[in-house]
């Protein structure tokens, strides 16, 4: 599988394949790239970021770890449907969202 590493702005071209039951990553320039290549091969995952209005505030939110790509739209839906009471930067909004193991946390809070 050929892909581009998304772990930093360099964007290394990766070649990922399986050999003797082991996932091999080539083309990475750092350990983060190797880890990314392996996950991308087995279970592609992404950090999801979005915003939600509540009262006088606009909250920016993120998953605190990557969630499987197939779950991205379900995560968005869940965030939309869950009421948000007043929180601060760094607070957990939804714990272990849809059993992905990722929490939705507040990354920013703006008064609108």
């Amino acid at each position: 599988m050929k892909t581009i590493c998304i772990m930093c702005p360099v964007g290394c071209s990766l070649n990922v394949y399986e050999k003797n039951g082991e996932v091999i990553v080539e083309g990475n320039s750092c350990p983060r790239g190797e880890a990314y290549g392996k996950t991308e091969f087995v279970n592609p995952s992404r950090v999801v970021t979005t915003t939600k209005r509540s009262g006088a505030f606009s909250y920016s939110l993120k998953t605190d770890k990557p969630v499987p790509k197939t779950m991205i739209f379900k995560v968005m839906e869940k965030i939309k449907k869950t009421p948000l009471k007043e929180l601060d930067v760094g607070d957990v909004f939804i714990k272990n969202i849809l059993k992905t193991g990722a929490n939705i946390i507040v990354t920013g809070k703006l008064t609108i």
Partner: peptide
Amino acid sequence: LGGILNQCIHNGFGLRQFKEELTGPEFAY
């Protein structure tokens, strides 16, 4: 404070300055 970072809610900031991956608002914070 924060400028354009406040609306850049995606991640990918901060690896150079803070050695960790942050969203725009987190970088600004």
